[in-house]
Write a protein that binds this DNA or RNA. Structure first.
Length: 569
RNA sequence: CGGGGAGUGGCUCAGUUUGGUUUAGAGCGCAGCGUUCGGGACGCUGAGGUCGUGGGUUCAAGUCCCACCUCCCCGACCA
């Protein structure tokens, strides 16, 4: 077995310049990973051991749930992706492709809905063959616009992706519930502090999804949580509520008035100049949804949520209008748009605008804003909806109590796809009545690499990583302070062999370096238990067992007692 | 793609402002020898550099100019 003097564990004393996130720094320093290029990492022996621990947990739980492991190709024919429309949708963003010598374009799979659906479509004919849940653990490729935070967002990463096929929506409910529960068990076993939140399905399609989020400083996502009732949702999805801004309509409205606002385009500057608060302004944002312009109104102190708008409009694509489009639609430049006088365009408003009176808007003219604009009198809104992001000042949409917004790392995501893929790829079956129907699908992903980073984000101190038993690369580190001292060396070797004989994953630091280096490295690697064989052994025959997480120290006379402690840890 | 920062031995950096002192430096690491041995020990000796790349200005470029590449951060974007 492995001993340190022969191991490839390049630890770093100094903080690597390339890393910002804590987990990234520690993974580099402890010799778990090394970067090749932005977004691609090599896993060194220690990192690979941990990764395999995660994979084993995932595999065990997936198998226990009745899901079956498969391995699909990473190289996909472009045609399948064209059929579902995702070639068009994703090619400009994340697809990694290459063209072979015959001019045929191949995609390196960023996910596998097309492939698994194609496979199942060809093999499953009858309701008697359903339901099925298939999964794989495989490398995915995505041309990420911006890889970040070490292994948290990379261009190449290992995903556990699972797909369920059911005969009806009830079946999907069951399959989905099983996966949801399995995910909870997996993340619990890994020792992650996580929250399952309601989320928007995004590019995967479908109506319902849940994300498994690990609150951490270096997270890329924001989640909303309510301590009182347990409501939890992604920031994109969280309901902002209907009550904000609701006031009784005033009977004597002030007359509209145009004012000069030279070069003043932001809410902040306008409100400062006109001596009003941002909540007395209404922002008018022109968006382009599936090629059609729509004007969206929101109170000045809130932010529009494009995900909610796209969902409301059932739009495939949605973006902010550029300056040219704004000029064309409103007649005025960017920054001076307002609802009054807009023609030939749908106007939708966030609930926050409901009940506002005598508010400030752009005048659809350069350097001009309007005071005392009012609903109905000055413009008509086609409808109100929840189009904004929730803020920390908002009440919980379920119980009305205080909410918190936290950053988090997404480690898993489960979706109800329905027939989005089975429909176009003709994954049909005959039901008991002999009628052909599309299978009802779900898909379920876990970012394997992210679990490690997320765990380290939550389990470290100034000195290094603090592994738990589930993910640790080794359970116990033997640290003879002076390996050149024959009696210490002899004792260390003896215990090492004993532990290995017991099937305990032990690691021996047999390097002939000063004790300080060994102690520092030991804390950095974060192996849960450390047995020091040193001065106390020479003087009194005692072995010192230190628990990495608590710092608790026990002196043992009999190394046999170790086994009990390790097994009970 | 927009904004900001950075690129000098394996690592962390100084030197660049105002071109010429060095033969381009330090600490750590690395190799050899010796002394140490419970919190990154010490002494001596030594190896290791296209100063990101290409071009330009100049008698002279790590240092000035232009172009490009790479990395990091913020944003856009993104299961």
């Amino acid at each position: 077995m492995l001993r340190w003097s022969k191991a490839f564990i390049p630890t770093l004393k100094e903080e690597p310049k390339e890393a910002e996130a804590i987990s990234h720094k520690l993974m580099l320093r402890a010799g778990l990973i090394r970067k090749l290029t932005s977004g691609t990492y090599s896993y060194l022996p220690l990192g690979w051991r941990v990764l395999n621990k995660v994979i084993n947990i995932v595999r065990e739980e997936m198998n226990a749930s009745g899901a079956q492991e498969v391995l699909l190709p990473a190289m996909h024919p472009k045609e399948l992706w064209e059929k579902t429309g995702r070639y068009e949708l994703l090619n400009k963003d994340i697809l990694v492709t290459y063209t072979d010598r015959n001019g045929k374009e191949t995609i390196f799979g960023p996910t596998h809905e097309e492939i698994i659906t194609h496979l199942v479509a060809g093999e499953v004919r009858s309701y008697k063959q359903l339901p099925q849940t298939l999964y794989q653990i495989q490398t995915k490729f995505r041309d990420e616009p911006r890889p970040r935070f070490g292994v948290i967002r990379t261009a190449e990463f290992i995903m556990k992706d699972a797909y369920s096929f059911d005969i009806d929506w009830e079946g999907l409910e069951q399959s989905y519930k099983i996966m949801y529960d399995v995910y909870c068990r997996i993340f619990e076993r890994c020792g992650l502090n996580f929250i399952a939140v309601e989320a928007d399905p995004g590019m995967m399609g479908g109506n319902v999804s849940h994300e498994f989020m690990v609150p951490a400083e270096s997270g890329e996502d924001e989640i909303v949580v309510c301590k009182s009732c347990g409501y939890a949702a992604s920031l994109d999805k969280a309901e902002a509520g209907k009550t904000s801004g609701l006031q009784p309509p005033a009977s004597n409205l002030k007359p509209i008035k145009e004012v000069e606002t030279p070069g003043i385009t932001t809410v902040e500057k306008v409100s400062k100049l006109l001596k009003v608060t941002p909540r007395e302004l209404v922002k008018t944002i022109i968006i382009v949804a599936d090629g059609k312009e729509v004007a969206l109104l929101v109170r000045g102190d809130y932010e529009l949520n494009l995900v909610k708008i796209a969902r409301f409009l059932k739009a495939e694509s949605l973006m902010l209008a550029d300056e040219g489009v704004i000029e064309k639609v409103t007649g005025g430049p960017l920054g001076f748009s307002g609802p009054a006088g807009l023609k030939g365009i749908r106007i939708l408003a966030d609930y926050s605008v409901q009940g506002m009176v005598d508010f400030v808007t752009g005048a659809n003219k350069k350097d001009r804003h309007l005071l005392n604009v009012n609903l109905e009198r000055d413009f008509k809104v086609e409808g109100f909806g929840d189009f904004r992001y929730i803020t920390p000042q908002d009440a919980c949409p379920r119980c009305g109590k205080v909410i918190a917004i936290k950053t988090a790392i997404e480690v898993g995501h489960v979706f109800k796809l329905g027939t989005k893929y089975s429909g176009v790829l003709k994954a049909n079956f005959l039901d008991a009545a002999g009628k052909e129907k599309p299978m009802i699908m779900g898909c379920y992903g876990i970012g394997i690499n992210r679990i490690i980073a997320a765990f380290i984000e939550q389990n470290h101190d100034k000195e290094g990583i603090i592994w738990n038993k589930a993910l640790c690369p080794f359970e116990i580190l033997l640290l003879p302070t002076n390996f050149a001292e024959p009696s210490i060396k002899e004792a260390a070797e003896k215990i090492y062999k004993q532990l290995l004989g017991e099937g305990i994953s032990a690691f021996l630091d047999d390097r002939e370096v000063s004790p300080g280096i060994k102690f520092k490295d030991a804390d950095l690697l974060g192996i849960p238990l450390r047995l020091v064989i040193g001065k106390k052994f020479l003087d009194k025959g005692l072995f010192e067992l230190k628990i990495r997480r608590t710092g608790e120290v026990k002196d043992l006379r009999d190394p046999e007692a170790l086994k009990k402690i390790i097994l009970s840890a």
